[in-house]
Write a protein that binds this DNA or RNA. Sequence first.
DNA 1: TACAACTAGTTTGCGGTGCAAACCCCAGTG
DNA 2: CACTGGGGTTTGCACCGCAAACTAGTTGTA
Lengths: 108, 108
Amino acid sequence: MPAPFERIAELDRLIHEPARLSILTALSACRNAEFLFLLRLTGLSKGNLSSHLTKLEEAELIVIEKSFVGKFPSTSIKITREGRHQIERHWKMLEELRHDALRWQPES
Amino acid sequence: MPAPFERIAELDRLIHEPARLSILTALSACRNAEFLFLLRLTGLSKGNLSSHLTKLEEAELIVIEKSFVGKFPSTSIKITREGRHQIERHWKMLEELRHDALRWQPES
DNA sequence: TACAACTAGTTTGCGGTGCAAACCCCAGTG
DNA sequence: CACTGGGGTTTGCACCGCAAACTAGTTGTA
């Protein structure tokens, strides 16, 4: 059995990055959220949220849909099946790695 | 109670970064390790490991001690009390945030 | 009508970061 | 001497996250 530390170092930074970890985790709890709602939930700045969303969309972890509600634009964000799968997997991996690290012994 | 997502977005990147999370977690299991040992444990490249160690030393999370064993240089790395405290805290926070996120409900 | 202020975002500029490749110093070998 | 290998460090660069500036449409208000 390889040491868990190597696997920690290989964690996917696209998902691991705090801002995106926050966004994906929130979306996985909400299914579908509006830009302004996510803004409040994550505490990110508008510009920041916007650029992280663009990155997540390029990776096909979320889908962004722009529309108008009354006269104002409204951006609705959904997590994709793949996105849901990956964020879930990431959290489980963290849990597992932590667990393995606690039980790890040199020379084992 | 504030939503946990904001706190996820605020995670300290000095520690959260995969390579350093790996190094600190390994050191917290070993107390004290040599450069080459850490190199194997984490799977990082030499240059990479070296620069991350420098950053961790600047933050006073580890102490680096260079010496010679026989005729060869040997770099021994120890985690500081503060370092141990912070990595422990980080893992616990991740666990807690994950827990809170799973139980979070809109409008609660 | 002119214009300030607001909503809902996007784009830009830039300092900071992580990575691999190149480099350094010393010891041993042919 | 030239060359190889051990043990790291430094450099170069592409990428990244952030805040500030900007866009586009809307609502006062004078």
